[in-house]
Amino acid sequence: MRQPDIEIYLKDADVDHTLIAKWLAQAIGPCSAWQQRGQTWKCHAGNIPVTWIPKAVGKWNSLLLESDQTPWEDDVSCARAAYAALDVEVRCAPGSWSEADGEEDADRWIRVSADGEEEITWRTS
Rank of each mutant, 00 (worst) to 15 (best):
M1G: 13
R2N: 10
Q3P: 08
P4I: 05
P4M: 12
I8F: 12
Y9T: 00
L10D: 11
L10M: 15
D12C: 06
A13W: 02
V15P: 03
D16S: 01
H17G: 00
H17F: 02
I20D: 04
I20H: 05
A21Y: 03
K22F: 05
W23E: 05
L24K: 03
I28H: 06
P30Q: 05
W34A: 02
G38P: 07
Q39M: 08
T40P: 00
T40H: 06
K42S: 14
C43V: 07
C43S: 14
A45K: 02
G46T: 04
G46V: 07
N47Q: 13
I48P: 02
I48E: 05
P49G: 03
P49Y: 10
V50G: 00
T51V: 10
W52S: 00
I53H: 04
P54T: 01
P54L: 00
G58A: 12
K59A: 00
S62W: 10
L63S: 01
L63R: 06
L63Y: 00
L65R: 06
E66I: 07
S67T: 08
Q69E: 15
Q69V: 11
T70D: 06
D74C: 14
D74W: 09
S77T: 15
A81W: 11
A82Y: 11
Y83Q: 04
Y83D: 07
A84I: 15
A84F: 15
A85R: 09
A85M: 11
A85W: 07
L86R: 00
D87G: 01
D87F: 01
D87N: 12
V88A: 05
E89P: 10
V90L: 07
V90F: 03
R91M: 13
C92I: 10
A93H: 14
G95Q: 13
G95C: 13
W97Y: 15
S98T: 14
D101R: 05
E103A: 12
E103Y: 05
E104N: 06
E104R: 03
R111Q: 15
G116A: 04
E118Y: 00
E118M: 06
E118S: 12
I120R: 08
I120N: 02
T121S: 12
W122C: 05
W122E: 09
R123Q: 11
T124F: 14
S125D: 08
S125Y: 09
